[in-house]
């Protein structure tokens, strides 16, 4: 697969940009958190594209964001349970 670049994304509409980024991100996140991969990917796609592109180049950055997302997701799930 060719690496995603900012110019490739800029050529596509926003919806496609997020889809392209998601398709690339999902397998990377699935390797770290198989059960939460879909939700984590969805959370990360809300981040700015330039930051997402940086994450492909920096595994440390990706891992850090993923762990952050997991923490937020878990807190969100606890909150949902307690409000029910």
């Amino acid at each position: 697969q060719e690496p995603l670049t900012a110019s490739m994304l800029a050529a596509a509409p926003l919806k496609e940009q997020k889809q392209l980024l998601g398709e690339r991100l999902y397998p990377l996140i699935q390797a770290l958190h198989p059960t939460l991969a879909g939700k984590i990917t969805g959370m990360l796609l809300e981040i700015d594209n330039s930051e997402l592109l940086h994450m492909f180049e920096s595994p440390e950055s990706l891992h850090s964001k993923v762990e952050e997302a997991v923490a937020v997701l878990q807190a969100h799930q606890v909150k949902e349970l307690t409000t029910k």
Binding site: L14, K15, K18, Q19, Y26, T41
Partner: peptide, 26 residues
């Protein structure tokens, strides 16, 4: 930010159009 939302986060599934676009301000 205004409480819990059962539809958040918008889950991404490979091959399926992501539904989270409405949360993003272009």
């Amino acid at each position: 930010s205004n409480g819990t939302n059962v539809n958040w986060p918008p889950e991404f599934c490979p091959g399926v159009p992501w539904k989270g676009l409405q949360n993003i301000d272009p």
